[in-house]
Simulated scan of single mutants.
Amino acid sequence: METAKSYKTADILQKTIEPAIKELETRGWTISYEKEKTGRKISHITFIWRKP
């Protein structure tokens, strides 16, 4: 996912990822994510998808 360099991680999570997860959960998916850090910064986001 490409985002502008000016976006902060909290903005990406709050305005992009969390609304998408809520929408997919209404369709039966179970989705969670884990933030992985390198030093003090979040460097990766790992998604876990489950369809019951």
Score class of each variant (00 low, 15 high):
Met1Arg: 08
Met1Pro: 07
Met1Gln: 10
Met1Trp: 05
Glu2Ser: 11
Glu2Val: 12
Thr3Cys: 12
Ala4Tyr: 09
Lys5Arg: 13
Lys5Ala: 12
Lys5Cys: 08
Ser6Pro: 12
Tyr7Thr: 09
Thr9Tyr: 13
Thr9Val: 15
Asp11Ile: 05
Asp11His: 06
Asp11Lys: 06
Ile12Gly: 07
Ile12Ala: 09
Ile12Ser: 09
Gln14Arg: 15
Gln14Met: 15
Lys15Thr: 11
Thr16Phe: 05
Thr16Ser: 06
Thr16Lys: 04
Ile17Phe: 03
Glu18Arg: 15
Glu18His: 13
Pro19Glu: 14
Pro19Phe: 13
Ile21Met: 04
Ile21Gln: 02
Ile21Thr: 04
Ile21Gly: 01
Ile21Lys: 03
Lys22Cys: 06
Lys22Pro: 06
Glu23Met: 12
Glu25Phe: 07
Thr26Lys: 07
Thr26Glu: 06
Thr26Gly: 01
Thr26Trp: 01
Thr26Pro: 01
Arg27Ile: 09
Gly28Gln: 12
Trp29Leu: 13
Trp29Arg: 08
Trp29Asp: 09
Thr30Pro: 00
Thr30Tyr: 02
Thr30Leu: 03
Thr30Phe: 03
Ile31Lys: 01
Ile31Trp: 00
Ile31Arg: 02
Ile31Pro: 00
Ser32Phe: 07
Glu34Ile: 04
Glu34Ala: 02
Glu34Asp: 06
Lys35Ala: 05
Lys35Cys: 03
Glu36Met: 08
Glu36Gly: 06
Glu36Cys: 06
Lys37Ile: 05
Thr38Gln: 05
Thr38Tyr: 01
Gly39Ile: 06
Gly39Lys: 04
Arg40Ile: 15
Arg40Pro: 07
Lys41Gln: 11
Lys41Thr: 12
Lys41Pro: 05
Lys41Ile: 12
Ile42Pro: 00
His44Thr: 07
His44Arg: 10
Ile45Phe: 01
Thr46Val: 08
Thr46Cys: 02
Phe47Met: 00
Phe47Gly: 00
Ile48Asp: 03
Ile48Val: 04
Trp49Ser: 04
Arg50Trp: 11
Arg50Gln: 15
Arg50Thr: 15
Lys51Cys: 08
Pro52Gly: 08
Pro52Tyr: 07
Pro52Leu: 07
Pro52Ala: 10
Pro52Thr: 08
